[in-house]
Nucleic acid binder design. Structure first.
Length: 460
RNA sequence: GUGGAUGUAGUUCAGUUGGUUAGAAUGCUAGAUUGUGAUUCUGGAGGUCGCGGGUUCGAGCCCCGUCAUUCACCCCA
């Protein structure tokens, strides 16, 4: 029998990791609820028709498909089988897939339940998603997303509150050095107009290849991006005018003023700038500073359904991809037949947050303890006495465990030490006689004799 | 889907131009100490060297294949 393994890109989470992961989940959930978001869960699997076509060609390839049950090959067209073309066959042998993100299932839910939902609808969702990617650093095939979305309102208050929530989550997690990058799809569209003949919009495909290329600007540099654009057939003149804007350096206000001058003929560009200015103005009304916020004209984000403001959060000085991202999508529910519902949302990637926090060594110690106290004993009589003590402690709300076997004290203390249990109560025949129990502080190594009630007071 | 790196004890890794019985640290375990852990000392267990083939008198080491892990690209949380 071979040693058992788990699938590529998946992980087990032991008790130590779970304590830290739950610390992250707990704080994100706390913030979501504080801003009025309500919980939602959807199935791990969706109908393939719900998922396909929502993430582009690349995305479709990364979908995990579930083989139909039963004798799924029986009714397959023989000529299709002959072709040996898997893509032709998938629709025949698979009708379900694992969810790829939380936003599309949410859109599906909204459309299915449109009659029940009171808009604007604010929901949060913390569940795993699956992507058939090649795993690498900070990239897994199964990972958790923590999404909060609002649908049914165009109000830019939602965008502003997303910024507030990001700041609050990072504060609770103890991450200090991070950047919230913001841009607007309309600003990018304005930019795209400049690449072609004056004011002519690019076809959608051309537009997205432009976005994908400039999104890499801070990663691969100006020359490589230009190269990529040329290979996609963009003219040098257009490329130069785009870089004339992208290379602009200055404060947020200077960037805004500069773009306004460039977009004098672009309705889209003007709209993008106006939205962004309004979000900044709203933030000021909340009385919250815009530190950590950066206006990044080159931020594009791949997902094609974004139409308004887009966000991305990076932790500085940690070599890991973005830990959070989101934006506004005007027509997500449109593909499911419900038009004119605007949504905006944010997603935190727990697994990357975990990796980054581990690298920065900023998990608080109290996120990691198990029992507060363990009771050690010597024989059957003292073990039985210990059970009563344990019950008293637990009734007072103190996490307590009794060492379950009769064995040497050394071994029991060793166990407590390894589990990082901070206190040990030693019950021997002397302690049983007068009720004065020995309480040992495992960190300091000191011990004192106390009544159970006094121990409760001390540990509570 | 494309390219690179690495597979030796539970774990992290040594292993000389190919040469006797493959080592260390750590962890595990027993004791030194019959009521005291994390420090110290002593003993013990633990390896089909990822798998399959080839070269050779001889392979952990060289060659081919294969699987796994990992990093990067594409894309993304």
């Amino acid at each position: 029998m071979d040693k058992p393994t788990i699938p590529k890109g998946t992980r087990d989470f032991g008790p130590a990791q779970m304590a830290k992961r739950q610390f992250i989940f707990y704080n994100i959930r706390k913030v979501f609820q504080k801003y009025g978001f309500q919980p939602l869960e959807t199935p791990a699997m969706e109908n393939l028709s719900t998922l396909t076509g929502k993430y582009g060609d690349e995305g479709d390839q990364l979908l995990f498909k579930i083989l139909s049950s039963g004798d799924y090959l029986k009714d397959v067209d023989a000529s299709k089988l002959e072709t040996r073309n898997s893509k032709l066959l998938t629709s025949e042998i698979s009708e379900k897939g694992l969810r790829y993100d939380l936003t599309v299932p949410f859109a599906r839910y909204v459309v299915m339940n449109r009659g029940e939902i009171t808009f604007p609808f604010k929901r949060y969702q913390i569940q795993p998603v699956w992507r058939a990617d090649r795993p690498q650093k900070g990239r897994y095939r199964e990972f958790y997303q923590c999404d909060a979305d609002v649908v049914g309102t165009d109000s830019l208050i939602c965008e502003a509150e997303i910024v507030l929530m990001i700041k609050e989550v990072f504060k609770l997690l103890g991450i200090k050095d991070f950047t919230i990058k913001i841009n607007h799809r309309a600003i990018l569209s304005g930019l795209a107009e400049l690449t072609g003949s004056q004011n002519a919009s690019l076809p959608a495909g051309r537009e997205s290849s432009l976005f994908v290329a400039i999104d890499k600007l801070d990663k691969i540099g100006e020359e490589k991006v230009k190269e990529e654009l040329r290979s996609h057939g963009f003219e040098d003149l257009g490329i130069d005018s785009v870089f004339g804007i992208l290379s602009f350096r200055g404060s947020t206000q200077q960037k805004i003023d500069f773009l306004k001058s460039k977009f004098s003929n672009s309705e889209k560009g003007k709209k993008g700038i106006a939205d962004f200015e309004e979000v900044l103005s709203l933030l000021r009304s909340y009385g919250v500073g815009v530190d950590n916020v950066e206006f990044d004209i080159s931020l594009a984000r791949g997902l094609s359904y974004y139409t308004g403001c887009i966000f991305e959060v990076k932790i500085n000085n940690v070599a890991i991809g973005s830990v959070s991202g989101g934006g506004r999508y005007d027509n997500l529910t449109g593909v499911f037949g419900l038009l004119d519902v605007s949504g905006v949302g944010i997603s935190f990637g727990v697994d990357r947050l975990y990796d980054a926090m581990e690298e920065l060594k900023i998990f608080p110690k109290e996120a990691q303890v198990s029992s507060k106290v363990m009771i050690a004993h010597f024989d059957d009589a003292t073990l039985r006495y210990a059970l009563g003590v344990a019950n008293q402690l637990r009734e007072s709300g103190i996490s307590t465990e009794v060492y379950p076997d009769v064995t040497k004290l050394k071994k029991q203390l060793d166990y407590a030490n390894k589990k990082e249990i901070p206190y040990v109560i030693v019950v021997g025949s002397d302690e049983m006689k007068d009720g004065m129990l020995t309480l040992k502080d495992m960190e300091e190594g000191e011990q004192e004799k106390l009544l159970v009630n006094d121990i409760v007071l001390k540990l509570k």
